Computed example of a mutant assay.
Amino acid sequence: MTGLEAHRQNDTVRLFLGGDVMTGRGIDQILPHPGDPTLHEGYVETAEGYVALAEQRNGPIPRAVPFGYIWGDLLDDLERRDCDLRFVNLETAVTTSDTAAPKGINYRMHPANAPVLSAAGIDAVTLANNHTLDWGIAGLVETLDVVEKLGISVVGAGRTGPDAAAPQMLPLPNGGRVLILAYGARDSGIPGHWGAAPAWPGINLLPDRPDAAVADARARLENRRQAGDVTLVSIHWGGNWGYEMDPEHRRLAHRLIEEAGVDIVHGHSSHHPKAIEIHEGKLVLYGAGDLINDYEGISGRETFRSDLVLGYVAEIAASDGRIQSLELLPYRIRRFRLCRAKPEESEWLHAMLQRECGAFGLHVAQNAAGAFQLTPS
């Protein structure tokens, strides 16, 4: 792997990958069209409460902000990197549904605020996560309608089982495509009854047996893959906190690469970044971490620094899907906005990344732009 160069290498695809994007609750309240703030949590009764917590921590937050506000410095950073595709996990229902699932924490954003996704140039999202059906089947269907109307591709959930399981095939300027397949694993907190059925809306659940999961991914990708395509499997798996590596997740990631021909495994669910591995030249993100959330004023997990987040810019060889470079963009969330990390915050992230990624033979260095670059040790 080489560092990110000023000019793109020939025959490569540059992707921006983000983790969980939660634009509901407090975030929704500061956007131009806030929805009903009513919550069904024991901790906070109204979404305005999360705005108040953040303001207590870092000062006043403006209201009716432009849609680009929450993305902050990320927008300029991406503009300079000329990515072919921008892909994130949208962990928020986009709906006015009032049918809250009885699960305690329910995320929703008003549909009129959906252009916040377009403001960041998001091309595709996965909805295979444990919040997509927070507001019932009606909330899921409305989410699909609203997001697709923006021209943003959706993967991992659908109006029927075949729709939820189908990969998205997104064209690239070089004539190739990115094939994206998404799953939600039950160990991330997804109820089993949220799974899509042949004629029923829902999520594309990850098969419980690894053999079945690998066979499913291989079957869905191999007949669609063409020369020059890059294949990505996105999985919402595991818990929200902790750096421990689930050995089953690692074995599955390796098998997806070895047996299903997957080029990128995009894992998420943890509220903080986790280890990164390069396996047989292919990229594995075990936990991309949150990118956008309203947790700014919540206490109790300070040791994980969930206020510090990363964006991932991966350059992939179109000829064989091998990773050519990986740049990590460091930010802190302040007043519900992504701000470039301060030196001491970058130092904390650097130490964490070196510790977690070093276990997989990677070295983390900071480049002249203040971002992190991963290379083999």
Rank of each mutant, 00 (worst) to 15 (best):
V265D: 10
I264W: 14
L252M: 13
H254G: 08
G228M: 05
W237G: 02
T231A: 14
S269H: 02
V265L: 14
G238H: 11
L232F: 06
H254N: 01
L252A: 13
S234C: 14
S234F: 14
T231M: 10
Q226L: 15
Q226W: 07
V265S: 12
S270T: 05
G239N: 03
W237I: 08
Y243H: 15
E244A: 03
N223G: 02
H266W: 15
A253M: 09
S269W: 01
G242N: 08
V262R: 02
A253S: 13
S269N: 13
I264V: 15
H236K: 05
S269I: 03
S270P: 10
V265W: 11
H236L: 02
V265C: 10
H266F: 12
I235V: 15
S269T: 11
V230N: 05
V233S: 06
L256H: 09
Q226V: 09
Q226F: 08
R251E: 10
D246I: 06
G228E: 02
N223Y: 04
S270F: 03
E258T: 15
E244P: 05
I235S: 06
W241P: 00
R251I: 07
R224Y: 00
H268W: 02
D229A: 09
M245L: 15
V262F: 03
I257D: 11
G228F: 08
P247T: 08
M245A: 02
I235W: 00
H236N: 05
H236M: 04
S269M: 08
G228I: 04
V265A: 13
L256Y: 15
N223T: 14
D229N: 07
H254D: 09
E258R: 08
S234G: 06
H236V: 08
D263V: 15
V233P: 06
Q226R: 14
R251K: 13
R251H: 14
R251A: 15
A260G: 00
D246S: 01
G267D: 11
A260V: 05
S234I: 07
L256S: 12
R250S: 05
